[in-house]
Simulated assay, not measured.
Amino acid sequence: MRYREIEPNGFLNNFVKCFWYYETTDTEIQHTILPDGYFDLIAEFENETLTTVKLTGIWTKPKDIQIPNNTKFFAIRFKLIAIEYIFQKEIKSILDSIVNLPFSFWSIDKYKSNEFEKFVSEITSNLDTSIKHLKQIDSRKLKLFDSVYEQKTKTVAEISSTVFWSSRQINRYFQTQFGITLKEFLNIVRCNATYEEISNGNLNPNSDYFDQAHFIKEIRKYTGATPKVLNQNKNDRFLQLSKMD
């Protein structure tokens, strides 16, 4: 398999984590996708032909997927704030699932399977333009997501105090838009932040977990596996850990 990421620059970084490319060869592959606190727009090509355009919801539990041989993915990994301002909708209705989109969505059907860089360049330009025409963006939301994704704040109370937004209002916003609470979002992002350490062989908890038992319990809750099993990553089962090798 081949995997690569391209991260955006400038203000778009508030909405997009990265563009990513994935390719299988002549072997079918099975992966388990782990919760990471993002959602994805994915275009799938099989044998050079576009076969699917889909939007994933937020994953709160591991998802097993089977990827056929000779498959390519062009994809965009979005931060949660993008659903409101770029897609202008909610995403709670597809929590832990996906929805298929028309091939013509964002003119994705015009790209050939060997034009990932063109896809990134043109989608980036289009998103930059659309963001400039957005209604005023709530600065509290920008600050909230920046704080969480960058691990600057670790609890609901800290975030509420930092962004001057009551925890009750924040949770109402999260439930309405995403179908999860802020606390669960924090837990998922915290779990995602451990994947690199686990991939590198560090199976001990950091200061974000009370002790080893709490660490193992939380990792198992969101990944379905212990840190030891994640580290072994047999047959590249866990894609998010494989790309860190």
Rank of each mutant, 00 (worst) to 15 (best):
I81E: 04
S166L: 07
T129G: 07
N171G: 00
K141F: 08
D138L: 08
S125H: 05
K154S: 02
F105C: 14
S93I: 07
R168E: 14
Q88F: 01
A157R: 00
T155P: 00
F74A: 08
E117R: 10
F78K: 02
F174I: 05
T71S: 04
F105K: 12
V156S: 00
R168I: 11
A82M: 12
I159R: 03
Y149L: 05
T153C: 04
Y149Q: 09
V163K: 02
R172F: 03
F87D: 09
I76F: 13
F103P: 01
Q175A: 09
S121T: 15
K112N: 10
Q136N: 03
F145C: 13
S113R: 09
N70E: 05
A157V: 03
V156R: 00
V120T: 05
K141P: 03
F74E: 05
K154Q: 03
L142D: 05
D146H: 06
A82T: 05
K79L: 06
L144V: 12
I98A: 14
R172Q: 04
V99L: 12
E122F: 12
F74W: 05
R168Y: 10
Q88K: 03
S113T: 06
Y85E: 06
I86C: 07
N126S: 06
K154N: 00
N100G: 10
Y149N: 14
F164D: 05
I81A: 03
K154D: 00
S104Y: 14
T71P: 03
E115P: 01
E90P: 00
L80T: 05
R140Y: 02
T155D: 00
I86G: 01
T71L: 08
F105P: 03
S166P: 01
N70T: 11
S147G: 12
N70H: 10
I98D: 13
E84Q: 07
I108F: 13
I159H: 00
K135M: 09
K79F: 10
I83P: 01
I94R: 06
Q151I: 00
L144P: 04
D128H: 03
S160E: 01
I91Q: 06
E158G: 00
E150F: 12
N69Q: 15
I131N: 08
H133M: 10
F174A: 08
E158L: 00
W106I: 15
I98R: 05
S113Y: 14
F174G: 11
L80Y: 09
A82H: 08
L95A: 01
Y111A: 07
I94N: 04
K154L: 07
S130Q: 13
I83M: 08
F119P: 02
K110H: 12
F78H: 04
K152D: 06
I86L: 11
S147A: 12
R77F: 07
F103R: 12
K154V: 00
Y85V: 09
I86H: 04
L142Q: 10
I131D: 04
I131A: 06
S107R: 13
T71V: 13
K152L: 10
